[in-house]
């Protein structure tokens, strides 16, 4: 019976870990998404100083918990977002408001999709 309790313990620990990862990844993604949304508005208004500041802030938040993200998220997907940040730098330096704002919006949707993929929902289970 000891092993059954061990099994139950493993299952409970995994459940707690699963919820924690879901909650933690939400809290990790929120500042990135917020900064990118603001950067999108700033880029559309051609406020490049503010755009630069916000994008750097978003990038800093994004890279701060890369190990945890790599442990739970699809590596190819993370790589695509990293490439998105690299492209954002190019458009920002070119001072192209439409392309920068569009890329910010694309990154936001990708990060939100990444967060959505971690959520315990019937759609994801199915």
């Amino acid at each position: 019976m000891k092993r059954s309790w061990l099994g139950l313990g493993i299952l409970a620990a995994l459940l707690v870990l699963g919820f924690w990862v879901q909650h933690y990844s939400q809290s990790l993604h929120k500042p990135v998404v917020d900064a990118l949304k603001k950067a999108q508005t700033a880029a559309a208004e051609e406020d490049w100083e503010q755009t630069e500041k916000l994008v750097k802030q978003a990038e800093k938040h994004w890279h701060s918990a890369m190990n945890i993200r790599s442990a739970v998220c699809d590596h190819d997907y993370l790589e695509q977002i990293n490439e998105g940040f690299a492209s954002l730098k190019v458009w920002r330096h070119a001072k192209d408001p439409a392309a920068t704002a569009a890329l910010c919006a694309e990154l936001v949707s990708r990060i939100e999709a990444l967060e959505e993929a971690q959520k315990l929902s019937l759609r994801n289970v199915l």
Binding site: R3, L6, L11, A71
Partner: peptide
């Protein structure tokens, strides 16, 4: 594929197996 995608299912299968065995 993230490492947890391999470890979590194995541990889950182990947990279920131990509970069912009991």
């Amino acid at each position: 594929i993230p490492l947890f995608s391999g470890l979590v299912p194995i541990l889950t299968v182990l947990g279920v197996e131990l509970v069912l065995a009991g």
